[in-house]
């Protein structure tokens, strides 16, 4: 295979990942690393670098669309970004020190979690209005359009949410992913924010979190222009296309298929890491 064919295949694979990620809401970034390592035999550190870059592209590229829907909460997002960016810097340092086999195993577990989390039916539907001292002080509240009127909500269990966000940031920096699943877990389950608010706020936090590890990745030589070029362009084109057709498509079957793909990739990442191939 020559360089042009290789780049072309990387582009097509990334395009498909971005498309499926946007259509199913699972995010395309999470499958880029397994795609590069398992299918194309790329070292996991180069794969993580290319993946991180594509995560920034999708998050920033879709920012305007999310705001227009009126669900995202800029203050809660910004406050929690303190935790995710600190976590991301910590995670990026870890990546340069932890053996690649350990990174592979953790990656596999996160893939399995992401697939399972997408099937958890119980989400916060109505936010609570109970205001703790911390939530009041930081004004962690808002309202969102629901059934034709504005529904109010206040953030619950702020320290637990903040802690989980640090974990989400660490995973993002360690694995080069957006870790949207953990961010949603923090806001939806721990902080009791309405599900729509959690997912859209998570989406705009992902880019800022990823940028916090990018400098460290770049200085360590993880970001290869030859690999990042087709991957970033592919994921971006795929996710923008996916967001456009999202409204018309019936995604239930697709979601199940993609979740199964993620599970298989997760198991393969773990096996390959344990047998010394990653």
């Amino acid at each position: 295979m020559n360089t042009t064919e290789f780049s072309g295949l990387l582009f097509l694979g990334s395009l498909l990942a971005g498309l499926l990620g946007a259509l199913t809401g699972l995010g395309g970034g999470v499958v880029i690393v397994p795609l590069l390592t398992l299918v194309f035999g790329v070292d996991i550190r180069y794969a993580i670098g290319a993946s991180l870059v594509s995560v920034i592209a999708t998050s920033s590229g879709a920012a305007a669309a999310y705001v227009r829907e009126g669900f995202s909460n800029i203050r809660i997002g910004m406050f929690l970004e303190i935790a995710t960016t600190l976590g991301a810097v910590f995670g990026a340092y870890l990546t340069t020190r932890v053996p690649t086999a350990a990174i592979g195993v953790i990656f596999g577990l996160v893939l399995l979690y992401s697939a399972i989390a997408s099937y958890k039916g119980k989400h916060t539907q109505e936010g609570s209005l109970e205001t703790s001292k911390l939530a009041g002080l930081l004004r962690l509240r808002g309202s969102y359009p629901h059934d034709g009127r504005d529904e109010e909500y206040v953030a619950q269990r702020v320290p637990a949410g903040f802690g989980l966000m640090f974990t989400a940031g660490t995973l993002s920096g360690l694995l080069g992913i957006g870790s949207g699943a953990v961010k949603v877990l923090a806001m939806d389950q721990a902080m009791g924010l309405p599900f729509k608010v959690s997912t859209t706020t998570s989406n705009f936090m992902i880019g800022v979190t990823a940028a916090a590890s990018a400098g460290i990745y770049l200085s360590r030589g993880y970001i290869s222009p030859e690999l990042a070029m087709p991957v970033m362009l592919g994921v971006l084109a795929g996710s923008l296309t996916g967001a456009k057709i999202l409204v018309h498509a019936n995604v239930k079957t697709l979601r199940t298929v993609f979740a199964l793909v993620i599970v298989v990739m997760g198991i393969e990442m773990i096996i390959n890491s344990l047998t010394g191939r990653i």
């Binding site: 064919e5 035999g41 790329v42 180069y46 030589g221 222009p225 030859e226 690999l227």
Partner: peptide, 18 residues
């Protein structure tokens, strides 16, 4: 022309690209 570069071994990208 010829076979693509290998990325299976990690060396880090060239210094000037960092």
């Amino acid at each position: 022309a010829g076979p693509r570069a290998e990325y299976s071994q990690f060396h880090g990208v060239a210094r000037h690209l960092r």
